[in-house]
Design a protein around this nucleic acid. Structure first.
Lengths: 134, 134
DNA sequence: TCTTGACCTTCCAGTTACAGGAACCTCTAT
DNA sequence: ATAGAGGTTCCTGTAACTGGAAGGTCAAGA
């Protein structure tokens, strides 16, 4: 199978698949014409990576998870640790965004949004006093 | 005031302030020794940018907000529109992260996390069936 | 046979918002 | 005179791709 077929199957852009080869996540064979030739294992791996990425794992996480996946002597604790760490990061990010959301939501509510220049949003941003960073 | 003083006042790294000059957000004067010399207006602007950034506004948003701030004939509607758009992006991001969090949370719960290789997390990632991306 | 269009290749640049580091200059205090 | 703190520019790297240029390959139709 050529890269276009795999792109369709895995729902990953061909560009992305080439990139994954560049950084050593996959290693497809080559035909005489230099076209990449993907086998079932490559498809499987790329699907794995795609799903991990869609859960927000970094590329390096994907690399580690893939290695564990292929290591039949792995300890599930190692997998869980990676996942838990990632979950913690997600939770931290959600908390950060929610704090922003709250502040920004209040500011937007209080802004008339008309033709006049008066704007609580700008006034807040321009405030001299040192608040804790959001 | 030199860059270090401003860095302390605004709580922005000196590197960041230089970067903001590079991209034209601020334009401090220079002393004979080529040191940047910041006045009160520069401090004010950098504080403004810092607070906008801490609410997650992009640099280009900051540029636009700063322009509106300095335009005394602005319409608050223009400010509100930028803020509302940003809020929408934040909400989308929160929703995305929450979906990841839910899926990942379930997977982690179901993983024993011991010395054995069996792992529902890996099994899920390796699934052949095409689910909707998370 | 020629051509057209779809597909493939590599390589380079751009994205975001900085951070790190090298090499070097300047100021102040001892 | 020298040390140390602070300033300068310039270059590289980050994450994970995306876009585009320039060009090779393949299958089908006129």
């Amino acid at each position: 199978m050529n890269i276009g077929d795999i792109a369709r199957i895995t729902n990953l852009p061909a560009k992305t698949i080439r990139y994954y080869e560049d950084i050593g996540l996959v290693n497809p064979a080559r035909d005489d014409n230099a076209y990449r030739r993907f086998n079932d294992n490559d498809v499987h791996k790329l699907g794995f990576i795609g799903r991990a990425r869609s859960l927000g794992f970094t590329i390096e996480d994907c690399r580690a998870l893939l290695a564990l996946y292929e290591d039949k002597d792995r300890a599930s604790a190692d997998v869980k640790q990676i996942a838990q760490h990632h979950l913690d990061l997600i939770d931290a990010k959600i908390a950060e965004l929610k704090a922003m959301r709250t502040t920004l939501g209040h500011l937007i509510e209080s802004c008339a949004g008309d033709h006049r220049p008066d704007c609580p949003i700008l006034e807040d941003l321009a405030v001299i006093s040192q608040k804790e960073p959001c």
